[in-house]
Design a protein around this nucleic acid. Structure first.
Lengths: 230, 230
DNA sequence: CAGAATTATTGACAGCGTGTCAATAGCCTG
DNA sequence: CAGGCTATTGACACGCTGTCAATAATTCTG
């Protein structure tokens, strides 16, 4: 496919016409042009395809990325993509799943000081990790009307994780009463944090200090509100 | 097509084989079965197709709605959809565009009192209008799949409008310095408001009073932060 | 009111993208 | 080196999209 000098062409069943296909697609991690095809471990191949898919899905929207594109990028037959991931949607879901989990947090390392101090530390940690991982995580929550239930579930799951960590850091975890309300409020706040970080990292309209101030100030209010609700 | 007893079949250009297609699609607003087809005003037909598309897009995600589905729902040939809207994407964009603009606001009617009072009034108005229009507007900002640049632009446009109104209501409109930063902060806040409203109306995890308190409290902080940034 | 003119509406076509599956060809083992 | 295991291929059937000439439902005109 990628190799240019493939002689036989082996006319399958019906001629189907010549149709001079001229893939000008550059395969990023596949084999070199003209090289004989290589047989990899399932894990390796799977990982390779996954990486290519991840890169492509980060560049253009879901439906603009064809399975053919992914296969071409990996230097592989299109059927192999389906073989390893079932269908395109599942592959996409796996990409989303892996990119939607915010990196590990060292909640235990948070200071035991005032609420204000813990808030500052949390926000600092949040912004630090975001600055490190780049904007990959941020792009996820903004899409239009997609509303795919599966994608939504994955994102909600990731959000729940963030909420859990946040509550732990704020010392709101233990209480039994009003747990659901507090969780909801934290969920709302996480959206705010995500949005604020987007202004800082993606749009570059706010400085880090400004975002920090904004997030810390609002978090204080939200936590007080949450505490009052208990 | 929908009419069962269509005799001639009139083989158009090349026979192409029978291929007994059997649409079992129910047309919602189209003509009754067996009725002769009706020729409408372009505006009427366009509106009818638009309505069907809106309903379908609200039910399942973009790519799960085929142009065939829309046409069938309208009781119309598929080609007509393309005739009126160019392609499926444009039709979709028009649906999003119409559903993403938050209803008119009577900013002028806001009281001239304290900041706190104006904030309360704004939040009240915001929640009122949302309660009235139902959750249609809310579903937009949550999907993770789309990431279509055009969709995103439309949503950003709508967001800008909300921000403008909010700044007007908060008395932050006039200043020339730091306008961009203030706008960014308001943008962040609008996301929070949207998210809070979602918890109230869609998830039903928070009461209206709780959301009100949350939004009012955070808005105060944001406005103070914004004012400090000027 | 009949016939012409206008144009809303249809239906078929070509092309692409997807998922499936038998056939093929690398690599490893005996 | 033969033989088996299985990673990998390639073609097929089918659905969806956009285009366009043909058609038929109106309206206009004498």
């Amino acid at each position: 496919m990628t190799a240019p000098g493939e002689p036989p062409l082996k006319a399958g069943r019906t001629a189907h016409g010549g149709s001079g296909v001229d893939h000008s697609g550059i395969d990023h991690s596949g084999r070199e042009a003209g090289q004989r095809r290589q047989r990899l471990t399932p894990d390796q191949r799977r990982g390779q395809i996954f990486d290519c898919a991840q890169r492509l899905f980060a560049q253009r929207p879901y439906e603009d990325v064809s399975a053919t594109d992914i296969a071409a990028a990996a230097g592989v037959a299109r059927g192999l993509v389906n073989h390893y991931f079932g269908n395109k949607r599942e592959l996409y879901l796996e990409v989303v799943r892996l990119n939607s989990t915010v990196p590990e947090v060292a909640v235990a390392a948070l200071p035991e000081g005032t609420l204000q101090e813990r808030i500052d530390a949390s926000v600092t940690w949040f912004l630090d990790t975001l600055a490190a991982t780049g904007g990959t995580w941020l792009g996820l929550g903004s899409g239009g009307m997609g509303r795919d239930p599966d994608v939504e579930r994955i994102l909600i799951e990731a959000e729940n994780l963030s909420v859990e960590r946040l509550m732990e850091a704020m010392g709101l975890a233990g209480r039994a009463t009003g747990q659901e309300e507090v969780r909801a409020m934290m969920r709302v706040y996480v959206q705010l944090a995500r949005s604020g970080a987007r202004e800082w990292l993606l749009r570059k309209t706010l400085s880090r200090a400004q975002v920090h101030s904004l997030l810390a100030g609002t978090l204080l209010v939200v936590v007080r509100d949450a505490a009052a609700a208990i």
